[in-house]
């Protein structure tokens, strides 16, 4: 502090009162009086310019993709890659309309979702607590981490033969592979989150009378949550990759199996339909994880 600053303050002792003088970001800015609905609409557009632009560009880009796809397949372009047998967007649309009335197709989707749900939930239920405990207790970390490091680089697909040997049913081995795919990203990110917990916050909690268990629950866990959710989002993506591979190799049913089967049965439109379905399901589940994250962490900063 400089004494000149103090001098300046001296002139207005009333400003010392606790709740004046400090500008804050939290204060609501006074709203301009809105004259009419059209003025309000204009303001809304001005405020949301960025979002509107992004939405517009996104739509245009998707449309352009469809148009390009349409013409490439319509004229059966052969230019390094061959579009000779590639189904057109309209053909895919037709098979989609047929498929949504077909209980088999819906069952494929339901089964894949079930496998994802089981494998991913198991990974989260084991990975998050394990990561928290490993992050808190050095001894556990030193014991388990080497094994995890050796197993981690093995892609889930490489586990397929082993999984078939390990588990009595096909279904179990597919869930196991989905589990493996999402387990490591979840574990590693949880560990990372734990390693970044601000020690000053732990001290602050101790000064307020918090004991070990309370510190774990009130400080370590919430402080790691943003990274835990990063792990869950990444884990969800890898879960789909692993699931589709497992379904294609060892599966009966499931959307990955559907896609592979379409190829075997020379139903080219169904290949694209399967692929798009996988994309949409993967996107939806990632969005779901993110939405849950926002719900669990209302303080933002993610």
């Amino acid at each position: 502090m400089t004494s000149s600053a103090l001098l300046r303050r001296e002139a207005e002792p009333a400003a010392i009162a606790a709740d004046t003088a400090e500008p804050t970001r939290a204060m609501p800015t006074p709203a301009l009086p809105a004259r009419s609905a059209s003025a309000m609409a204009a303001r809304w557009i001005k405020l949301n310019k960025e979002r509107i632009r992004a939405l517009l560009l996104g739509t245009i880009s998707l449309l352009l993709f469809l148009v390009a796809w349409h013409f490439l397949t319509k004229y059966r372009v052969v230019f390094f890659v061959r579009f000779t047998n590639v189904p057109s967007p309209l053909a895919v649309h037709a098979s989609f309309v047929k498929a949504i009335h077909d209980p088999h197709f819906l069952m494929h989707i339901a089964l894949s979702c079930r496998r994802i749900f089981l494998g991913f939930s198991l990974a989260a239920l084991i990975g998050v607590p394990l990561g928290l405990v490993m992050g808190r207790f050095k001894l556990v970390h030193e014991t388990i981490f080497p094994v995890a490091e050796v197993l981690r680089p093995i892609p889930a697909i490489a586990w397929v033969p082993m999984a078939i040997m390990l588990w009595p049913t096909n279904e179990q081995s597919i869930v196991f592979i989905t589990f493996l795919g999402s387990f490591f990203p979840i574990l590693v990110n949880t560990l990372h989150g734990m390693s970044l917990v601000d020690p000053v916050l732990v001290r602050a909690a101790q000064c307020l009378g918090a004991q070990e268990r309370a510190i774990f629950r009130e400080v370590y866990f919430p402080a790691s949550l943003p990274h835990i959710f990063t792990g869950l989002t990444v884990g969800m993506g890898v879960a789909w990759v692993s699931l589709i591979a497992a379904e294609m190799i060892s599966g009966q049913y499931g959307i990955g199996y559907f896609t592979w089967e379409a190829y075997s049965l020379v139903q080219y439109a169904d290949i694209a339909l399967g692929m798009i379905t996988i994309g949409v399901l993967g996107l939806a589940s990632s969005l779901l994880v993110r939405a849950i994250g926002k719900l669990v962490m209302p303080w933002g900063r993610t």
Binding site: L201, R203, A205, Q206, C207, L208, G209, P222, W299, R301
Partner: peptide, 27 residues
């Protein structure tokens, strides 16, 4: 450390996941 000795840190050290009131309630 104990709640008998309250401490204020330079880095504020408020729990970001707790509201202002929840922070004050913590002890």
């Amino acid at each position: 450390p104990s709640a008998e000795r309250g401490m204020v840190f330079q880095q504020y050290s408020l729990f970001p996941w707790k509201t202002v009131r929840e922070n004050v309630e913590f002890g």
